[in-house]
Amino acid sequence: MQRSYIRHLWRLFFLQSTHNEKTMDGLGFYHVLAPEMRDWARNEEELEEIASRSMGYFNANPILASYILGIVQNMERRRAEGSEPSIERIERMKSTLSAVLSAKGDYFFEVVLIPLGLTIAGIFGMYSSYFGPIIFLVLYNYYHLQARIGGYLTGLRAGEGLGGDLVAQLYKEQGALAGCAAFASGVFAALAVVRAYAFGGFGLAGWGVAAAAGVFLLRRRISVMWSVVFVFIATAIYLLLS
């Protein structure tokens, strides 16, 4: 049993290997559940049906997808044992949780946790300290591995009963962490001003503030890549001319 868990968990980490525009992570979803599928089917036709169904559209936050995979695995097991959940119910649970957990996971990990960790790493990095990347990796992976491993095992144990409370229970601290992330961003911005002023006086600090304002405004109109490239080149030209 333990070996089976490890096999599923290992596969969870490669969910997006064949991410595509049509079914998103459909093949990844199948790949995670594949080792146990034969146990759920009574005959070859049913195995083919389960496999084809698993390959359908699946679009979820890759970290919180662990909960969904655990829950679906639990429901498929119970269905194979002759219990209640119907195919329609499993599919409905999968699509509902995908939508809800994607919104939750994208906000928590992408908007709050990663910028927070990277800003802290950036602050330490400004002083040539290696602690920054270490703090970032520890902070991020604490939540990441907890969601990946703990989420899968919780989903597998609790099954569909988990669905209702899951979103309300997850990451209650996200508001506080978002405040910390904004505060750390302010610290980073102030340090950038102070260090630029110390190194290049008012001219460099003033250009820096103008560059920050430029990125802020450009980002409303164009993609992040072009905003960064544009301000990067403008900064180089300013430095060469000044």
Partner: peptide, 8 residues
């Protein structure tokens, strides 16, 4: 760092 500060 100002580019990052602007995005933040």
């Amino acid at each position: 760092p100002f580019i990052g500060a602007g995005l933040l």
